[in-house]
Design a protein around this nucleic acid. Structure first.
Lengths: 132, 132
DNA sequence: CCAATTAAGACCAAATAGGTCTCCTATTAG
DNA sequence: CTAATAGGAGACCTATTTGGTCTTAATTGG
């Protein structure tokens, strides 16, 4: 399959939504959930993860909320995926035992990995939010 | 994570092993399992899938076995992954409902997808088996 | 002090993946 | 022709991951 998880998908949707509005505006979890149609607890979870990953800034207390931590053009797809799912690595070949014994394939994987990562780094949130 | 499954990983190991030997030689599942150190039933399963995907040719009966269906240089990483896991698609954005309503992100995903696919198509089994 | 909102993490249920087993079919050696 | 060998197909169970919910604590504005 080679795909991202649903949580990551939600992350992209949420960030895309926020990117298409005033950068400094604070969005609280409840409004975002209502706007996008995803259950509140799940939205809350995604926002929390993105905050921990440095993509979002949070503001606690009443009248609090979330905002992008930097300009949408400086946030890449790679950063978002890494924030939610951890480092992008097609295979964990490097750490498996069987691999070191029998397959001299690892260097090739690293090339593929680099290509994938490059593609993801070349796409900013601004690109995604802008392109209809 | 964005990674391939273990079954796919085994597939690469098995194919890499076969590619590094005489192209016409038949390998039976038992010997391959012993050579690589993966349980026989699992090896058998992987070989079966690769055969269905057209990557391997099987030869039944006693003295039977498996061999590559074409030259290692004509088998790409993309083909192998697709044979085992189905079509390469980072996200199933296109079919989700929430997506169509609220995220204009799909076109961007398709670009990313194409980039990933290109990277995988540019890597042949011969490249992987050859590069130490 | 009180209400609103995020932070953190425990927790459960459903889906997926990994692996094993059983039975069936085909081919070849003798 | 028969028996042994090897692949073909798929059911099945288990473990892991994922998705989603809930509860409690911490923070801040009024």
């Amino acid at each position: 399959m080679l795909r991202i998880t649903k949580i990551t998908d939600y992350g992209f949707i949420l960030l895309g939504y926020m990117a298409r509005q005033d950068q400094d505006e604070l969005h609280n979890a409840k409004d975002l959930a209502a706007a996008i149609g995803i259950p509140l607890p799940t939205v809350s979870k995604v926002l929390k993860i993105l905050t921990q990953g440095g993509i979002l800034q949070s503001h606690q207390g009443s009248k609090g909320g979330y905002s992008l931590s930097k300009d949408a053009s400086e946030i890449t797809a790679a950063q978002i995926i890494e924030a939610v799912e951890g480092p992008v690595a097609i295979t964990d070949c490097s750490s498996a035992e069987g691999c070191e014994r029998n397959c001299p394939i690892s260097p090739s994987w690293q090339r593929v990995n680099a290509a994938v990562l490059g593609a993801l780094q070349g796409l900013s949130l601004a690109d995604m939010a802008g392109g209809a």
